[in-house]
Structures are given as structure tokens and as C-alpha cells.
Amino acid sequence: MVNPIRLGSTLLLATLGGLMAMATPAQAELRICNETANLVSVSLGYRAERGWMSEGWWQTPPGDCRTIFQGDLARRFYYLYAVDDIGGGSWDGQVFMCTRDETFTIFGVEDCLARGYERTGFFEIDTQNRTDWTLQLTESAGAPSIVGPDLGEDLEDPAFLVDPDEPLTPDNTDTQ
């Protein structure tokens, strides 16, 4: 026979644990989901406290998602460059930041080549001031495309707007 006091305590603890889990705020992050048939490598650029920075690489297998920025998205705009490791295609843009072939964290977007880095075109992600964002990298008739959190929103040709609080000069270097 089950002790009713022990059973009641167990149920109470399970209920409190469930309520506490529901009260825990959702984890905010920037996620990239690879909806292609090939492995994709992703790099991220954004305005950090010390200025512009870029970091990479997150390898994302087909059908999988990776968190590339953990925590509330403090900025409205983030910048992404991704490359299909098998097919050779890329998701890129006109906002230039520094990258390199190995894992990297690079501060600054100026003089990439002179500093020994590659100068790579990133595309802009407008998170619309949300604290959590998931982006899907897809192939559309063999060409890469990008789908934002609202599945009907095709961002294949994103507008490269710059947040007025995060100015870039025309050649995409930090003005500060």
C-alpha cells in the first residue's frame, strides 16, 4: 500500500516543479536552421559593446538547427554569411566584415585584408526588435533562399538597411 502522505508530497513537489518550469522565461536566442541537403557553415556579425565583431563557424547539418547567439537579442540587426560546404553556394550580401577559414572571433570590420583576414559580404537580418529569432536557410530551385520566423516571409533579397544607432560608413567600416 502506498503511503498517502508520501504520495501527496510527491504530487505536490511534481506540481510545484512543473509550475516553476512554466514560470521560467523562454530562452532567447538567434537560431539558424539548415533546410538544405548539404552541410552549411555559418558566421555571424553584430555590434558588440567593443564595436563591430564577426565570429564563426557554426556547422549545421541538413535538417538541423544551431544556436549562433545565445541570450536576448539586444540589437535589431544582425549579419550573417553562410556557405554550402558541399555544393559551394553561399548566402551573402553587401555588408562587409572580416572572416577567416578557421574558427574566429574578430573585432572590427576595417582593413580585413591588411589584418590578415578575408573580406566577406554578409546579409542583414532584421529581427524587428524581437528577443528571439529563427532563420531557415533553404534551397529554392537550386538557389539558396532565406525564410524568417514567419514562414511566409521570404527574405531571399533582404533590404540592407542599417540601424541608425549602429552606423556604418558607405564602405562598411566602423565610424567610431
Rank of each mutant, 00 (worst) to 15 (best):
I5E: 07
L7E: 14
L12Q: 07
L12G: 05
G17Q: 08
L19N: 03
A23N: 05
A23H: 10
I32E: 04
T36C: 07
T36E: 10
T36I: 14
N38P: 03
S43V: 12
R47W: 07
A48K: 00
A48I: 08
A48G: 09
E49Q: 10
G51L: 05
G51S: 04
M53G: 01
M53D: 01
S54T: 11
S54R: 01
E55H: 07
E55C: 08
W58C: 02
W58E: 02
Q59N: 15
P61I: 10
P62V: 10
T67F: 06
Q70H: 07
Q70F: 07
G71M: 02
G71A: 03
G71L: 04
D72T: 08
R76P: 10
A82E: 10
V83I: 10
I86T: 14
S90N: 12
W91T: 06
F96D: 07
R100D: 05
R100V: 11
D101A: 15
T103W: 06
T105G: 08
F107K: 14
V109W: 13
E110I: 13
L113I: 14
A114K: 14
G116F: 09
Y117V: 07
Y117L: 08
T120I: 05
G121W: 08
T127Y: 04
T127P: 00
N129S: 12
T131F: 00
T131H: 09
T131M: 01
W133K: 01
T134M: 07
L135K: 03
Q136M: 15
T138V: 15
E139Q: 13
S140P: 07
A141G: 12
P144C: 14
V147Y: 01
V147T: 11
G148K: 01
G148M: 06
D154P: 00
F160S: 11
V162H: 09
D163K: 00
P164E: 03
E166L: 06
T169S: 11
T169M: 03
T175V: 15
